[in-house]
Protein backbone atom coordinates (compact mmCIF):
# COMPACT_ATOMS: atom_id res chain seq x y z
CA UNK A 1 0.00 0.00 0.00
CA UNK A 2 2.70 2.45 1.01
CA UNK A 3 4.46 2.04 -2.26
CA UNK A 4 1.29 2.61 -4.22
CA UNK A 5 0.60 5.82 -2.34
CA UNK A 6 4.12 7.02 -2.90
CA UNK A 7 3.87 6.23 -6.55
CA UNK A 8 0.60 8.15 -6.84
CA UNK A 9 2.08 11.09 -5.02
CA UNK A 10 5.08 11.02 -7.27
CA UNK A 11 2.90 10.99 -10.36
CA UNK A 12 1.16 14.10 -9.16
CA UNK A 13 4.37 15.91 -8.40
CA UNK A 14 5.87 15.00 -11.71
CA UNK A 15 2.87 16.16 -13.64
CA UNK A 16 1.71 12.66 -14.49
CA UNK A 17 5.03 11.82 -15.96
CA UNK A 18 6.29 9.87 -12.99
CA UNK A 19 7.89 6.59 -13.51
CA UNK A 20 4.89 4.32 -13.40
CA UNK A 21 6.30 0.85 -13.05
CA UNK A 22 3.14 -0.96 -14.04
CA UNK A 23 2.70 1.04 -17.17
CA UNK A 24 6.35 0.82 -18.01
CA UNK A 25 6.37 -2.89 -17.54
CA UNK A 26 3.29 -4.21 -19.22
CA UNK A 27 2.07 -1.94 -21.95
CA UNK A 28 5.08 -0.47 -23.63
CA UNK A 29 4.11 -1.95 -26.90
CA UNK A 30 0.58 -0.61 -26.89
CA UNK A 31 -0.19 1.09 -30.20
CA UNK A 32 -0.14 4.82 -30.57
CA UNK A 33 -3.74 5.88 -31.26
CA UNK A 34 -4.75 6.43 -34.80
CA UNK A 35 -6.16 9.66 -36.17
CA UNK A 36 -9.63 8.23 -35.89
CA UNK A 37 -9.20 7.43 -32.25
CA UNK A 38 -8.08 10.96 -31.44
CA UNK A 39 -11.08 12.38 -33.27
CA UNK A 40 -13.35 9.89 -31.59
CA UNK A 41 -12.16 11.01 -28.18
CA UNK A 42 -12.59 14.67 -29.14
CA UNK A 43 -16.10 14.01 -30.40
CA UNK A 44 -16.93 12.30 -27.13
CA UNK A 45 -15.91 15.45 -25.34
CA UNK A 46 -17.99 17.54 -27.74
CA UNK A 47 -20.97 15.41 -26.82
CA UNK A 48 -20.20 15.85 -23.13
CA UNK A 49 -19.97 19.62 -23.59
CA UNK A 50 -23.20 19.65 -25.57
CA UNK A 51 -25.06 17.60 -22.96
CA UNK A 52 -24.01 19.89 -20.15
CA UNK A 53 -24.86 22.94 -22.27
CA UNK A 54 -28.32 21.57 -22.97
CA UNK A 55 -28.88 21.12 -19.26
CA UNK A 56 -27.70 24.67 -18.66
CA UNK A 57 -29.80 26.09 -21.47
CA UNK A 58 -33.07 24.75 -20.16
CA UNK A 59 -32.21 25.21 -16.51
CA UNK A 60 -31.05 28.81 -16.81
CA UNK A 61 -33.94 29.67 -19.12
CA UNK A 62 -36.41 28.37 -16.54
CA UNK A 63 -34.72 29.85 -13.49
CA UNK A 64 -34.12 33.19 -15.13
CA UNK A 65 -37.71 33.28 -16.37
CA UNK A 66 -38.67 32.71 -12.75
CA UNK A 67 -36.38 35.64 -11.94
CA UNK A 68 -38.25 37.67 -14.59
CA UNK A 69 -35.07 38.43 -16.54
CA UNK A 70 -34.90 41.58 -14.48
CA UNK A 71 -31.26 41.99 -15.41
CA UNK A 72 -30.32 41.79 -19.09
CA UNK A 73 -27.24 39.80 -18.11
CA UNK A 74 -29.61 36.98 -17.25
CA UNK A 75 -29.87 36.22 -20.96
CA UNK A 76 -26.14 35.50 -21.17
CA UNK A 77 -26.13 31.85 -20.08
CA UNK A 78 -28.99 31.13 -22.43
CA UNK A 79 -27.15 32.57 -25.43
CA UNK A 80 -23.85 31.02 -24.45
CA UNK A 81 -25.23 27.59 -23.74
CA UNK A 82 -27.16 27.65 -27.00
CA UNK A 83 -23.94 28.49 -28.84
CA UNK A 84 -22.15 25.78 -26.93
CA UNK A 85 -24.77 23.27 -28.04
CA UNK A 86 -24.33 24.49 -31.61
CA UNK A 87 -20.58 24.09 -31.72
CA UNK A 88 -20.80 20.80 -29.85
CA UNK A 89 -23.08 19.43 -32.53
CA UNK A 90 -20.67 20.77 -35.08
CA UNK A 91 -17.81 19.03 -33.32
CA UNK A 92 -19.80 15.84 -33.09
CA UNK A 93 -20.33 15.65 -36.85
CA UNK A 94 -16.86 16.90 -37.65
CA UNK A 95 -14.53 14.01 -38.44
CA UNK A 96 -11.54 16.20 -39.16
CA UNK A 97 -8.41 16.68 -37.18
CA UNK A 98 -7.39 19.95 -35.60
CA UNK A 99 -9.12 22.43 -33.35
CA UNK A 100 -11.74 24.67 -34.87
CA UNK A 101 -11.35 28.39 -34.07
CA UNK A 102 -15.09 29.06 -33.77
CA UNK A 103 -15.61 26.10 -31.46
CA UNK A 104 -12.66 27.17 -29.40
CA UNK A 105 -13.98 30.72 -29.16
CA UNK A 106 -17.42 29.59 -28.03
CA UNK A 107 -16.03 27.13 -25.52
CA UNK A 108 -13.72 29.74 -24.04
CA UNK A 109 -16.61 32.21 -23.91
CA UNK A 110 -18.74 29.62 -22.15
CA UNK A 111 -15.99 29.06 -19.63
CA UNK A 112 -15.75 32.77 -18.93
CA UNK A 113 -19.51 33.18 -18.79
CA UNK A 114 -19.61 30.70 -15.98
CA UNK A 115 -16.99 32.60 -14.04
CA UNK A 116 -18.72 35.94 -14.53
CA UNK A 117 -22.06 34.33 -13.67
CA UNK A 118 -20.67 32.93 -10.48
CA UNK A 119 -19.49 36.41 -9.53
CA UNK A 120 -22.96 37.77 -10.33
CA UNK A 121 -24.66 35.11 -8.26
CA UNK A 122 -22.32 35.72 -5.34
CA UNK A 123 -23.06 39.42 -5.57
CA UNK A 124 -26.78 38.65 -5.64
CA UNK A 125 -26.45 36.63 -2.45
CA UNK A 126 -24.39 39.22 -0.62
CA UNK A 127 -26.82 42.03 -1.29
CA UNK A 128 -29.77 40.05 0.12
CA UNK A 129 -30.68 40.46 3.74
CA UNK A 130 -28.85 37.78 5.68
CA UNK A 131 -25.91 37.67 3.25
CA UNK A 132 -24.19 34.31 3.14
CA UNK A 133 -26.92 32.57 5.10
CA UNK A 134 -28.44 29.19 4.42
CA UNK A 135 -31.62 31.03 3.42
CA UNK A 136 -29.82 32.76 0.58
CA UNK A 137 -27.71 29.77 -0.37
CA UNK A 138 -30.91 27.76 -0.69
CA UNK A 139 -33.20 30.27 -2.32
CA UNK A 140 -31.21 33.11 -3.90
CA UNK A 141 -29.35 32.82 -7.17
CA UNK A 142 -27.58 29.47 -6.77
CA UNK A 143 -23.87 30.07 -6.48
CA UNK A 144 -22.93 26.75 -8.01
CA UNK A 145 -25.20 26.88 -11.03
CA UNK A 146 -23.22 29.15 -13.38
CA UNK A 147 -20.22 26.87 -13.00
CA UNK A 148 -22.09 24.34 -15.12
CA UNK A 149 -21.71 26.45 -18.24
CA UNK A 150 -18.00 26.72 -17.45
CA UNK A 151 -17.86 22.94 -17.33
CA UNK A 152 -19.47 22.74 -20.74
CA UNK A 153 -16.84 25.15 -22.01
CA UNK A 154 -14.09 23.23 -20.29
CA UNK A 155 -15.11 19.86 -21.71
CA UNK A 156 -15.43 21.36 -25.18
CA UNK A 157 -12.12 23.10 -24.84
CA UNK A 158 -10.46 19.85 -23.79
CA UNK A 159 -12.05 18.20 -26.80
CA UNK A 160 -10.49 20.78 -29.05
CA UNK A 161 -7.10 20.27 -27.41
CA UNK A 162 -7.34 16.52 -27.89
CA UNK A 163 -8.38 17.00 -31.50
CA UNK A 164 -5.47 19.35 -32.01
CA UNK A 165 -2.95 16.56 -31.61
CA UNK A 166 -1.16 15.50 -34.73
CA UNK A 167 -2.29 12.21 -36.16
CA UNK A 168 -0.19 9.38 -34.97
CA UNK A 169 1.06 11.11 -31.84
CA UNK A 170 0.08 10.54 -28.26
CA UNK A 171 -2.68 13.03 -27.47
CA UNK A 172 -1.45 15.61 -25.02
CA UNK A 173 -3.10 18.61 -23.42
CA UNK A 174 -0.85 21.42 -22.23
CA UNK A 175 2.05 19.08 -22.33
CA UNK A 176 0.33 16.47 -20.25
CA UNK A 177 -1.23 13.21 -21.35
CA UNK A 178 -4.75 14.08 -22.49
CA UNK A 179 -6.48 11.13 -20.84
CA UNK A 180 -5.07 12.00 -17.45
CA UNK A 181 -5.91 15.69 -17.77
CA UNK A 182 -9.49 15.02 -18.84
CA UNK A 183 -9.93 12.39 -16.14
CA UNK A 184 -8.63 14.70 -13.40
CA UNK A 185 -10.64 17.72 -14.49
CA UNK A 186 -13.80 15.68 -14.97
CA UNK A 187 -13.35 14.19 -11.53
CA UNK A 188 -13.04 17.64 -10.01
CA UNK A 189 -16.06 18.85 -11.98
CA UNK A 190 -18.15 15.95 -10.74
CA UNK A 191 -17.33 16.93 -7.19
CA UNK A 192 -18.40 20.51 -7.84
CA UNK A 193 -21.68 19.42 -9.38
CA UNK A 194 -22.21 17.04 -6.49
CA UNK A 195 -21.86 19.96 -4.10
CA UNK A 196 -24.60 21.83 -5.93
CA UNK A 197 -26.94 18.83 -5.96
CA UNK A 198 -26.07 18.16 -2.34
CA UNK A 199 -26.98 21.69 -1.29
CA UNK A 200 -30.35 21.57 -3.04
CA UNK A 201 -31.16 18.06 -1.88
CA UNK A 202 -30.25 19.09 1.64
CA UNK A 203 -32.72 21.95 1.20
CA UNK A 204 -35.23 19.24 0.34
CA UNK A 205 -34.18 17.37 3.50
CA UNK A 206 -33.36 14.27 1.40
CA UNK A 207 -37.02 13.46 1.81
CA UNK A 208 -36.77 10.69 -0.77
CA UNK A 209 -33.93 8.15 -0.48
CA UNK A 210 -33.29 8.50 -4.23
CA UNK A 211 -32.07 12.00 -3.47
CA UNK A 212 -28.95 10.40 -2.03
CA UNK A 213 -27.90 9.00 -5.44
CA UNK A 214 -26.44 12.23 -6.85
CA UNK A 215 -24.39 12.78 -3.71
CA UNK A 216 -23.00 9.25 -3.62
CA UNK A 217 -22.62 7.97 -7.18
CA UNK A 218 -20.82 10.99 -8.68
CA UNK A 219 -18.24 11.30 -5.88
CA UNK A 220 -17.44 7.64 -6.33
CA UNK A 221 -17.13 8.25 -10.05
CA UNK A 222 -14.87 11.21 -9.31
CA UNK A 223 -12.68 9.03 -7.13
CA UNK A 224 -12.41 6.45 -9.88
CA UNK A 225 -11.47 9.14 -12.38
CA UNK A 226 -8.82 10.62 -10.12
CA UNK A 227 -7.46 7.16 -9.57
CA UNK A 228 -7.40 6.66 -13.33
CA UNK A 229 -5.74 10.05 -13.76
CA UNK A 230 -2.85 9.15 -11.55
CA UNK A 231 -2.87 5.41 -11.98
CA UNK A 232 -1.55 3.17 -14.69
CA UNK A 233 -2.56 3.86 -18.24
CA UNK A 234 -3.51 1.34 -20.84
CA UNK A 235 -5.80 -0.50 -18.48
CA UNK A 236 -9.33 -1.31 -19.55
CA UNK A 237 -11.00 -0.44 -16.18
CA UNK A 238 -14.32 -2.09 -16.96
CA UNK A 239 -15.64 -1.42 -13.46
CA UNK A 240 -14.88 2.28 -13.70
CA UNK A 241 -16.47 2.44 -17.12
CA UNK A 242 -19.50 0.67 -15.78
CA UNK A 243 -19.76 3.03 -12.86
CA UNK A 244 -19.49 6.07 -15.11
CA UNK A 245 -22.10 4.63 -17.44
CA UNK A 246 -24.35 4.17 -14.43
CA UNK A 247 -23.69 7.75 -13.38
CA UNK A 248 -24.62 8.91 -16.87
CA UNK A 249 -27.81 6.88 -16.64
CA UNK A 250 -28.52 8.37 -13.22
CA UNK A 251 -28.48 11.83 -14.80
CA UNK A 252 -31.22 10.73 -17.18
CA UNK A 253 -33.14 8.89 -14.47
CA UNK A 254 -32.89 12.08 -12.45
CA UNK A 255 -35.09 13.82 -14.98
CA UNK A 256 -37.73 11.16 -14.45
CA UNK A 257 -37.39 11.38 -10.68
CA UNK A 258 -37.66 15.14 -10.83
CA UNK A 259 -40.73 14.76 -13.01
CA UNK A 260 -42.17 12.61 -10.27
CA UNK A 261 -41.16 15.32 -7.81
CA UNK A 262 -43.12 17.86 -9.82
CA UNK A 263 -46.14 15.60 -9.65
CA UNK A 264 -45.76 15.45 -5.85
CA UNK A 265 -46.37 19.18 -5.58
CA UNK A 266 -49.88 20.49 -5.08
CA UNK A 267 -51.91 20.19 -8.26
CA UNK A 268 -49.24 18.01 -9.87
CA UNK A 269 -48.60 18.38 -13.57
CA UNK A 270 -51.96 20.04 -14.11
CA UNK A 271 -50.48 22.93 -12.11
CA UNK A 272 -47.33 22.88 -14.24
CA UNK A 273 -46.97 26.65 -14.42
CA UNK A 274 -46.22 26.66 -10.72
CA UNK A 275 -44.75 23.25 -10.17
CA UNK A 276 -42.18 23.27 -12.97
CA UNK A 277 -40.57 26.05 -10.95
CA UNK A 278 -41.53 25.14 -7.41
CA UNK A 279 -40.69 21.49 -7.88
CA UNK A 280 -37.26 19.96 -8.50
CA UNK A 281 -35.64 21.30 -11.70
CA UNK A 282 -36.15 18.87 -14.58
CA UNK A 283 -33.09 19.93 -16.62
CA UNK A 284 -30.53 19.85 -13.82
CA UNK A 285 -29.63 16.15 -13.48
CA UNK A 286 -28.26 15.65 -17.02
CA UNK A 287 -25.24 17.73 -16.01
CA UNK A 288 -24.09 14.51 -14.40
CA UNK A 289 -24.67 12.67 -17.66
CA UNK A 290 -22.50 15.16 -19.51
CA UNK A 291 -19.68 14.85 -17.03
CA UNK A 292 -19.94 11.07 -16.95
CA UNK A 293 -19.63 11.07 -20.75
CA UNK A 294 -16.48 13.16 -20.40
CA UNK A 295 -15.22 10.69 -17.83
CA UNK A 296 -15.84 7.84 -20.26
CA UNK A 297 -13.94 9.76 -22.92
CA UNK A 298 -11.05 10.14 -20.50
CA UNK A 299 -11.01 6.45 -19.70
CA UNK A 300 -11.08 5.64 -23.40
CA UNK A 301 -8.14 7.96 -23.96
CA UNK A 302 -6.28 6.30 -21.14
CA UNK A 303 -6.85 2.88 -22.58
CA UNK A 304 -5.91 3.89 -26.08
CA UNK A 305 -3.16 6.18 -25.13
CA UNK A 306 -0.42 4.83 -23.07
CA UNK A 307 1.47 7.81 -21.87
CA UNK A 308 4.90 6.51 -21.04
Amino acid sequence: MATTRERLKASFLLGFRGEAPVARGGYETAPIPSKTEIVTAARRLNRAAGTIAASVLVDSAMEHYRGDFRNKAMWTPIVTSALSIGVSVHGHVDGRHGAHPLRDTVYVAAGLTGLVGTAFHIYNVTKKVGGFSWQNLFYSAPIGAPAAISLSGLMGFLGERVRDNKPGTRPMVAGLPAGRVVAALTGASLLGTTAEAGLLHFRGAFHNPAMLLPVTMPPAAAALLVYAAVGPAGVARPASRGWLAATAAMGIAGVALHAYGVSRNMGGWRNWRQNLFAGPPLPAPPSFTGLALAGLAALALLVDDKDD
Partner: peptide
Amino acid sequence: ASPRGYVR
Protein backbone atom coordinates in the same frame (compact mmCIF):
# COMPACT_ATOMS: atom_id res chain seq x y z
CA ALA B 1 -55.17 30.36 -4.71
CA SER B 2 -55.57 26.62 -4.63
CA PRO B 3 -54.19 24.29 -5.81
CA ARG B 4 -51.99 26.92 -7.47
CA GLY B 5 -50.20 29.21 -5.07
CA TYR B 6 -47.24 31.39 -5.94
CA VAL B 7 -43.71 30.89 -7.17
CA ARG B 8 -42.31 34.40 -6.98
